[in-house]
């Protein structure tokens, strides 16, 4: 059997988690490699969780929040974005390929967009192969 990546997706209760629900209702298919963790806001996700996931065997980590300007809590997704730019760079510092991390925006009525994000990420990670924890950068 080929490599089946494990991807952690932190989904905001108000948008992407709801979109995932709607994807189900609409029977939209996406790869089974994603494990959704429900959070109240993308701004709740401490970057430590991203790193913790990668260091414990996740092959990819996604944070999915509401479109900018549509945060349920005013500007939580902007905080998530600010952190995200930072995470992307820090992953390099920490020796991980930053392509293993992504942030995206999906509204609650965009199950297609969510499924596409899941599919793209899974494909991307599949091509990259698993994280080598001894040498996460894959040099």
């Amino acid at each position: 059997m080929g490599f089946e990546p494990k991807i952690i997706a932190f989904c905001c209760n108000w948008c992407s988690y709801a979109a995932a629900d709607l994807a189900g209702t609409s029977r939209i298919q996406y790869p089974h490699n994603v494990r959704i963790i429900r959070v109240m806001c993308s701004g709740m996700v401490h970057p430590e969780l991203v790193l913790d996931a990668l260091s414990h065997g996740a092959d990819g980590v996604m944070v999915i929040g509401c479109h900018l300007g549509e945060c349920h809590y005013q500007d939580g997704n902007h905080k998530a974005l600010a952190r995200s730019d930072m995470i992307t760079e820090l992953l390099d510092d920490m020796g991980y390929e930053n392509e293993r991390y992504s942030i995206s925006w999906v509204s609650s009525s965009e199950p297609d967009r969510l499924a596409r994000a899941f599919t793209n990420m899974t494909e991307r990670i599949r091509k990259m192969g698993p994280v080598d924890l001894q040498n996460p950068a894959g040099q």
Partner: peptide, 16 residues
């Protein structure tokens, strides 16, 4: 939704 809860959820997800 404590950090510990989220972290344990992540780790649980990754246990094969």
């Amino acid at each position: 939704f404590t950090l510990d809860q989220l972290r344990d959820q992540v780790r649980a997800a990754l246990q094969a």
